[in-house]
Design a protein around this nucleic acid. Structure first.
Length: 343
DNA sequence: AATCACCCCAACCGCAGAGCT
DNA sequence: CAGCTCTGCGGTTGGGGTGAT
């Protein structure tokens, strides 16, 4: 508990690193490597604990660190991966060479704050790259769906979300899976298979994120203390809900897709036009962009699948053990059928 | 110019797990 | 197998920078 043995020394310095300290650490590590961090401070002549040295090296000093603003591609990767693995920053960082978990975490947290502020104020002036990347049709979809009434953040203050960790107060980023998608599907399956229900919380409302962004609110007192009973009920509810949603999806896709496409083309001059601009420098963008510009309909369908996929993932990661293998299979099928325009 | 509020991000803290004895 | 050390990770904090008033 508490400080590590290496940090208990009284002479250990804390706070910001001076250029001299940085130089000492860099000089030592470049010539000796860092086999054992606890030995580094003494050998490098630093009055720091090994943990602090490690952090400084990993997050700031190592030569392959990539600094500066996140590119739009990196943003998308972060958003997509976060939708899959949640707050596993180190894992997300492993998909972004040169970026650190700390950096991504800071970025995500500040982005969340921005979104909270934005959702708190009615004025809508998109400023960030991410904001600009929100597909037009999502807004259409969002405003005409029951999400408006049932969205998770609009819960009673006294109630406690039990299964909604991934369903933060931020509007979910309805972005399609793009970029380095390899391996993600396996991770999804792994994540879903390892789902664990959170501890039972008596006498509170359960806000359960379900497919399509609904949140079903269940009075726990109605359920008594039986988790099994709750799971059984949810399984039943979910079955019905899924049936409804399947037909709803079909209807929506049939009825709205054409108007969505038209809106995108009218308002953005084609959504892919925006994407291509954002992705300058990525090989093949021009060609893909041209093709997609010429086939707005296909693009709309693809994004719709992306939305569905995201939706399924969020549901699973939010803690729906009841879905189990069925969900896993659906995700796999959807992921398989979805062809990212950026690949 | 001074003050305040807000934001970013480097660094710290506490915990979990791996590995060693 | 228990106990200890070390490493790595995610959550949190607080100092400094910056823009608004």
């Amino acid at each position: 508990m508490g400080h590590h043995s290496c940090c208990n020394q009284q002479k250990v310095k804390r706070g910001l690193w001076s250029p001299e300290e940085d130089e000492k650490l860099v000089r030592y590590i470049t010539s000796n490597g860092y086999g054992c961090w606890s030995e580094v401070p003494e050998k490098a002549g630093l009055q720091r604990c090994g943990k602090s040295c490690r952090l400084r090296w990993i997050n700031y000093l190592r030569p392959d660190i990539r600094r500066g603003r996140f590119t739009s591609e990196e943003e998308k990767i972060i958003i997509n991966l976060h939708a899959v693995v949640g707050n596993r920053w180190a894992h997300i960082a492993s998909h972004l060479p040169g970026r650190t978990d700390n950096e991504i975490k800071n970025y995500w947290n500040s982005w969340i704050k921005k979104k909270i502020r934005k959702s708190a104020s009615p004025s809508k002036t998109p400023s960030s790259t991410i904001d600009n990347l929100q597909p037009t049709y999502v807004d259409n979809f969002h405003h005409t769906s029951v999400m408006e009434q049932l969205e998770y953040p609009k819960q009673e203050p006294s109630s406690k979300p039990v299964f909604a960790k991934e369903f933060s107060s931020v509007s979910p980023p309805f972005l399609p899976l793009t970029g380095p998608i390899e391996g993600i599907r396996d991770e999804i399956d792994h994540e879903i298979s390892g789902l664990n229900l959170e501890p039972w919380q008596p006498n509170c409302d359960l806000h359960v994120p379900s497919s399509f962004g609904f949140t079903s609110v269940i009075d726990s007192s109605y359920l008594g203390n039986s988790v099994e009973r709750w799971e059984e009920m949810e399984r039943e509810n979910l079955g019905n809900m899924r049936e409804n949603m399947e037909s709803m999806r079909e209807n929506m896709m049939r009825e709205n897709l054409e108007s969505i496409r038209e809106n995108m083309m009218r308002e953005n001059g084609g959504f892919m036009g925006v994407q291509v601009q954002e992705c300058n420098g990525v090989e093949g963008d021009e060609r893909v962009g041209r093709e997609c510009m010429e086939s707005g309909w296909v693009e709309a369908q693809q994004y719709h699948q992306g939305l569905m996929l995201w939706d399924q993932l969020t549901t699973g990661l939010g803690g729906y053990a009841a879905l189990g293998p069925q969900l896993s299979g659906n995700v796999d099928a959807l992921a398989g059928s979805y062809q990212s325009p950026f690949l």
